[in-house]
């Protein structure tokens, strides 16, 4: 299987890799909807390696946490994290979703029927998750923050 970084290289041949590695700390994590300036602000804790890739309408900040979960923050030209995706052991959703975590919990509790495919929509938040034990895949995005020209199918 391709490693995540190889995937990026294959899927984004026309992209420019801006920087390979810098430091990430949970305290400075830019959650969904946050200003992205804090992503690389704190160099106190080396908990994950981060790679930044520029695309036409946004940039992707990808990190692998110590427990192996790959997290991508999608950052708009306006400097906002408009989407987050994850793969691997379950991430700290409270950290990833930030102010939208409670919104997710409330909406998730209102869906009927039990399943492993979770799809929750509120006015602005769209949350998808699936997978199996030891390997969870998910994404969350804010419809109002998606840059024009971007299809949500790209957010994976």
């Amino acid at each position: 299987m391709l490693k995540p970084f190889q995937l990026i290289g294959l899927r984004m041949k026309s992209c420019v890799v801006i920087s390979v590695l810098f430091l990430y700390s949970p305290q400075s994590f830019a959650a969904l909807g946050d200003d992205a300036s804090s992503i690389n602000a704190d160099e106190a804790h080396l908990n994950a390696s981060v790679r930044v890739t520029a695309r036409a309408y946004y940039s992707i900040h990808e990190m692998q946490t110590a427990k192996g979960t790959v997290i991508r923050q999608y950052v708009s030209p306006a400097g906002r994290v408009f989407a987050i995706t994850w793969k691997g052991f379950s991430p700290d959703l409270q950290l990833l979703l930030g102010d939208h975590f409670n919104e997710y919990l409330v909406a998730a509790s209102q869906t009927a029927h039990h399943g492993r495919g979770v799809h929750v929509e509120t006015n602005d938040l769209v949350f998808d998750s699936g997978g199996h034990m030891r390997y969870v895949v998910g994404r969350a995005f804010l419809r109002s923050q998606i840059p024009s020209g971007v299809s949500t199918d790209e957010l994976r």
Partner: peptide
């Protein structure tokens, strides 16, 4: 996965099918 109660695959945009309205939005 026998513990998943449906075929769960991709997203509404990728497959060209709408998600159901709440509270059945998982499907």
């Amino acid at each position: 996965d026998s513990g998943s109660n449906a075929y769960f695959f991709l997203s509404s945009g990728a497959v060209g099918m709408p998600n159901c309205p709440n509270p059945e939005s998982d499907f």
